[in-house]
Simulated assay, not measured.
Amino acid sequence: MQTTGTKHTQRSRATRAALVSAARALFAERGYAGVGTEEIVRAAGVTRGALYHQFRDKTDLFDATVRTVEAELTERIAGQVMTDAADPVGALKAGARAFLDAFAEPDVERILLLDAPGVLGWRRWREIGQEHGLGVITAALEAALAGGATAGRPVPPLAHILLGALDEAALMVAHADDPEAARAEMTEALEHLVDGLLARNG
C-alpha cells in the first residue's frame, strides 16, 4: 500500500515532468522569449502555483528543460550510436557525427544552442554540457587507449578539448547561412581532430 508521502512524491514528480514536457514543446516552437508562464501551465494542465512550487521562475524551468534535452541527447548517442561502432576511435567519430546531426532537430537546436547560452549564461550552459557529455567522452577515450591507441596527453584534458570542439562546431552549424554545408565541414574537422589526438600502436 502506498503511503501519503509516496503518493505526494509521485504527484510532485508527475507535475514537474508535465511542466518540463509542456515547456520543451513551447520553447522549441517559439523560443524562450516568446513563451509565457501562463501558457506553460495551461499546456501542462497545472496551476500557476504548482509551477512556482516546482521551479523558482521561468529561467529555472528552462534550466530543467535544457538538462532534460541534454540528458536525452547524451543517452541516445552513447547508448545507440557509439556502442554500434567497430572500435573505440570509430565510436568517437560516430558520436561526433551523431552529435552534430542531432542539432538538425529543431527542438535540440533551439533549446540547446540558440537559447541556452544566452538565457542561462555561458558558464551554466557549459556546466550542463560537461555534466552529461564529459563522462561519455572520457570513457570513449579511455576505451580507445585500452584498445591500442596512444595519446600525447592524459585523458582529462583531451576530453575537455573534444567537448569544447563539439560545442563550438555545433554553434558554427547553428549560425551558418548553409547549415548542411557547415555540418559536413565541421564533421570532417572533428574526425581529423580525433585522428590527431589519437594514434594506433604498431
Rank of each mutant, 00 (worst) to 15 (best):
D115G: 03
L100N: 10
A64T: 02
M1G: 15
L113R: 04
M82H: 06
H160V: 05
T68F: 09
L193A: 14
R16S: 14
D60A: 14
A151Q: 05
V81T: 13
A25F: 01
T6P: 00
H192N: 07
L112S: 09
H132K: 05
A78M: 04
E29Q: 12
T47K: 06
G121Y: 03
W125I: 01
A143G: 08
G133S: 08
L198F: 05
L171Y: 02
V155A: 09
Y52D: 08
A28N: 06
D60R: 02
H132E: 14
P157T: 08
A165L: 04
A182E: 15
A104C: 00
D84M: 07
A139K: 12
H192Y: 08
T187F: 06
M82R: 10
L163G: 07
A23T: 06
E127G: 01
R126D: 08
L51A: 03
T37F: 00
P154I: 05
P106E: 09
E105C: 03
A181C: 11
L19I: 10
E72Q: 08
A184T: 13
R126S: 10
G95I: 07
E191H: 15
G135L: 07
T47D: 07
R110F: 04
F27Q: 05
E131W: 07
R16V: 09
V66W: 00
R76Y: 15
L100F: 10
L145H: 09
F103D: 00
P156Q: 07
G49E: 14
A43N: 02
V119H: 07
A143E: 14
E131R: 11
T47M: 04
G196L: 02
T68K: 04
R126T: 14
E180D: 15
W122Y: 13
Q2G: 00
V155P: 09
I40Y: 03
V81M: 01
E39L: 02
R76V: 01
T150A: 15
A181W: 12
G79Q: 07
H132T: 05
D101R: 10
S21V: 06
K7H: 11
G152Q: 09
E188I: 05
A14T: 10
P157M: 04
E142T: 11
D178I: 10
A189G: 12
I111F: 02
A64G: 03
E131I: 00
G133R: 06
A14R: 15
E180I: 09
A184I: 00
K58E: 11
G49L: 03
L190V: 11
A149L: 06
A44P: 07
A96P: 12
G45L: 05
G147L: 02
E131V: 01
L26T: 06
K93L: 07
N201L: 10
A28D: 12
L190G: 13
V194S: 13
R124A: 09
L193C: 08
R97D: 15
F62G: 03
T59F: 01
L92C: 09
E142Y: 04
A71E: 12
A102E: 14
